[in-house]
Amino acid sequence: MSGTHRPCGTSYGSPTPGTAGPDLLQAVIDGYGRPLTPEEEAQLTVSSVLDAVSDISYGTAHGDPELVERDQRTLARLRTEQHP
């Protein structure tokens, strides 16, 4: 969506761990040089949830249904991963 600006620190239009898929997440972990600790994995989940909620709020306020739908899918996937 051209012409829209998100506040500094947000990830509008960029993949997040919640949306990027396993290949990109594995590349991040490989680049980090070690597996994530359980605490880091929990923080990654929390960050993904917060990012998705922020994107849903932004997308709703700015008429971006694709952003809203993408992050609703992210939340649904994260919920499923936490409660298989």
Rank of each mutant, 00 (worst) to 15 (best):
E81C: 04
G59T: 01
P38E: 09
H62W: 01
T37H: 02
H62L: 01
L75W: 08
G21H: 10
G31Y: 01
T80C: 03
T19I: 10
H83G: 05
E40S: 01
D23R: 13
S47E: 15
T74C: 15
L25F: 13
P22I: 14
H5K: 13
L36Y: 06
T4S: 03
S2A: 12
T60D: 01
Q43G: 05
H83P: 03
G59Y: 00
L67W: 00
E41V: 10
T74F: 03
D71Q: 07
I56Q: 01
P35G: 08
T10E: 08
L67Q: 05
Q82K: 15
C8G: 05
G18Q: 08
V53A: 14
P65L: 04
T19W: 01
L67K: 03
Y12S: 06
Q26G: 13
R77Q: 12
C8W: 07
R79H: 09
T19N: 07
I56T: 05
P65F: 02
A42S: 12
C8H: 12
V53M: 13
E69F: 00
R77A: 11
T19L: 08
P38S: 06
A42Y: 02
T45Q: 13
Q82T: 14
G18D: 10
S47G: 15
P38F: 06
H83N: 13
P38Q: 02
E81G: 06
Y32Q: 06
E69I: 00
L50I: 09
A61T: 04
A61K: 08
T80A: 14
I29P: 11
S14C: 09
G33C: 02
P35T: 14
P84E: 07
Q72N: 06
L44D: 06
P35D: 15
A42N: 09
T10L: 11
L44S: 09
L78M: 10
L75R: 04
T10P: 07
V49L: 09
Q26I: 08
T37K: 01
S54E: 14
G18V: 06
P22F: 14
A42W: 04
V28R: 14
P38C: 03
L36N: 05
L44Q: 11
A52E: 00
T80V: 11
M1E: 01
E69T: 02
S47I: 05
I56R: 03
L50W: 13
P35A: 13
G3P: 01
A20F: 07
R70P: 00
T60W: 03
L36A: 03
D55F: 02
P15D: 10
L24H: 12
A42K: 14
R34H: 08
Y12C: 12
L78A: 05
E40Q: 09
E66A: 02
L67I: 07
E66R: 05
Q82N: 13
G59V: 04
E40P: 03
G33L: 02
V49M: 11
S54M: 13
R34Q: 04
G3W: 04
H5G: 03
P17E: 05
L25A: 13
L78P: 07
R70H: 04
H62T: 08
E69P: 02
Q82D: 15
T16W: 05
D71F: 06
S14D: 03
S11N: 15
L78V: 12
P35F: 08
T4I: 09
Y12E: 08
L44K: 11
L24V: 15
E41D: 14
P84A: 07
E66F: 00
